[in-house]
Design a protein around this nucleic acid. Sequence first.
DNA 1: AAAATATCGCAACAATGTTGCGATTAAATA
DNA 2: TATTTAATCGCAACATTGTTGCGATATTTT
Lengths: 130, 130
Amino acid sequence: MKTTRNTTAKTAVLEVFEKSKTALSHTEIQKQLNGICDRVTIYRILDRLMNDDIIHKISNLDGTVKYAKCNHSHQRVHIHNHAHFSCENCHEITCLENVKPSYIMPHNYKVKEINFTLSGLCPNCLNSNI
Amino acid sequence: MKTTRNTTAKTAVLEVFEKSKTALSHTEIQKQLNGICDRVTIYRILDRLMNDDIIHKISNLDGTVKYAKCNHSHQRVHIHNHAHFSCENCHEITCLENVKPSYIMPHNYKVKEINFTLSGLCPNCLNSNI
DNA sequence: AAAATATCGCAACAATGTTGCGATTAAATA
DNA sequence: TATTTAATCGCAACATTGTTGCGATATTTT
């Protein structure tokens, strides 16, 4: 089986995620890495981190894709079915770990995963009187 | 003010939407149009149809973008805050007009729009014993 | 029929993501 | 510690998706 290695680039990417409270796009990560590694390498690191369940992918309403660290906190099995909030002003995406929607489905559908994204103004931008 | 015109290409695109029960990507529309018009024209038609509130945009979990006809049925004001279902087998996206999630938000967030996408198996694929 | 302008086609570009391959380097083994 | 193995990297090249400018065309109004 493939074992995953700890490389300079991977460590650097993880540090970027540690420092950030919000989800990050590939481009944002690349900027913060400051040329430490190639663009392609970042894509491959993100793939590995997703396989290892260390980060997860979020695709926004407008089609942009971001990544965020998983919060494994207390659960034994990690589930990505939490909500995300996308601020229309600062464009930051945050995970709302505790927001879980309830809903009623029509019959004959088998639901395996849900994606729930809310958008509007985040607390920061709301306080800035916009 | 800009008035929107009825052109051959626009009519053709609308027909494609009429024929389809599921949401369509730009590429899927292009294939069905069979070279009737340019790739760019389709993008511009989609933009216009979205402005006119005739179709709406859906971005899927995997980052793919699709478009679907709006269902104006009975409401006076059209709202896009309904759910979408994405089949992991046939990759079709359908609008679940009647599924609306309920949820509890943390304070200090102002929610203006929600996007709720479920994925799994659609009735068709579920019946095919997969 | 003529005028006004929305739309089109083409070319060119930008952003984002993928793949192949030889070179490098982390980790296991001797 | 030195050697070996294979995971990872950098580079180049390519694919897909979406955007923009501009002269030509077609729809709608006058």
